[in-house]
Computed example of a mutant assay.
Amino acid sequence: MRLTVDHTSTYTYETGVSYALQQVRKRPVSLPSQSILSWDLSIDGARLETSYTDHHGNLVDLVQVDPDASSVTVSVKGEVETHDMSGMMGGHRQLVPLWLYKRPTGLTAPAKGLRALAGKFGSNTAQDVGVLHEVMAEIATHVAYQTNETDSETTAEEALQKGQGVCQDHAHIFISVARLLGFPTRYVSGYLMMTDRIDQDAGHAWAEAWVDGLGWTGFDVSNGICPDARYIQVATGLDYRDAAPIRGMVYGAGAENLVVSIQVQQ
């Protein structure tokens, strides 16, 4: 399937920025599941300092905001040929070892509710891909998809207790439970072509667990499926903070407002 992406993020600031440095992870790489045909990044109100590949294998553009800038716009336009891998995304190509993806983070740290959820699947479940499908289905019954109930700093435990969340929360809960069951698991950010709309107001997120004999295997709790040819992977990490499209520090800007516009279509 050939997909096109048009993604614009515009930040406006109450006062002129005195200093801001941002990591931009908006450029995907070719994988067994996708071939990048074209991809262009443009920046207004800031300048590109350098580009590098981080330890998770993500392409990162380090951007410094212009002094006294009142707005910054980061846009990408691209075309990608995707391939349906039935959720199996291939081997481990990152520099970091697989065991790192068993490590809890601030957003995925297991607490009482997450441990109880993992306890439903018993022991000796590691490397049983079937149990991961069960985990995906179980999370969907406990946490309804609902916007404006959580934010980027909501933890997996908080979203589970609230019983509502978005794809980021579903991914974090899945990651926490799968790690408790012994699977190296990572967060994935990217895009999903929806069948009922072209315009979207946010990117998409899901999780991948490492299964011996299969490699990295994707699970999208929000849609109850493994990723297919409608998905484009952009960045991965231990949680959202490692794979966020834009993340950094801003000084002297006062209140900040973000407007996101995304179009994904065939």
Rank of each mutant, 00 (worst) to 15 (best):
I139V: 02
I139E: 03
I139H: 01
I139T: 04
A140S: 11
A140R: 06
T141S: 09
T141L: 01
T141Y: 03
T141P: 00
T141N: 02
H142T: 04
H142R: 10
H142K: 12
A144C: 04
Y145H: 09
Y145K: 03
Y145D: 00
Q146Y: 12
Q146L: 10
Q146C: 07
T147Q: 13
T147M: 09
T147D: 04
T147N: 11
N148S: 14
N148V: 14
N148H: 15
N148A: 15
E149R: 14
E149V: 15
T150V: 14
T150A: 12
T150P: 00
D151F: 09
D151K: 08
D151W: 07
D151E: 12
S152H: 14
S152K: 10
S152V: 15
E153K: 13
T154G: 13
T154V: 11
T154I: 10
T154P: 04
T155W: 13
A156C: 14
A156G: 14
A156L: 10
E157M: 12
E157L: 13
E158K: 15
E158N: 15
E158S: 15
E158Q: 15
A159V: 04
A159I: 06
A159H: 06
L160Y: 09
L160P: 05
L160Q: 05
L160N: 02
L160V: 08
L160K: 03
L160M: 03
Q161N: 11
Q161H: 10
K162Q: 02
G163E: 06
G163H: 00
Q164S: 08
Q164K: 06
G165A: 00
G165M: 01
G165Y: 03
G165C: 01
V166T: 01
C167P: 00
Q168V: 06
Q168H: 00
Q168A: 01
Q168M: 05
Q168F: 01
Q168S: 04
Q168D: 00
Q168K: 05
D169N: 01
H170S: 00
H170F: 02
A171E: 03
A171S: 04
I173E: 06
I173A: 01
I173M: 00
F174Q: 00
F174Y: 03
F174D: 06
F174I: 02
I175D: 06
I175P: 05
I175T: 05
I175K: 05
S176C: 06
V177P: 01
V177E: 01
V177R: 13
A178H: 08
A178S: 14
A178M: 06
R179W: 11
R179H: 09
R179K: 02
R179A: 07
L180W: 07
L180S: 05
L181T: 09
L181Y: 09
L181S: 11
L181Q: 04
L181F: 07
G182Q: 08
G182P: 13
G182C: 07
G182R: 10
G182S: 13
G182T: 15
F183P: 02
F183N: 09
F183E: 07
P184S: 12
P184I: 09
P184K: 10
P184L: 07
P184T: 07
P184W: 10
T185F: 03
R186L: 08
R186E: 10
R186A: 08
Y187H: 09
Y187W: 14
Y187F: 15
Y187Q: 09
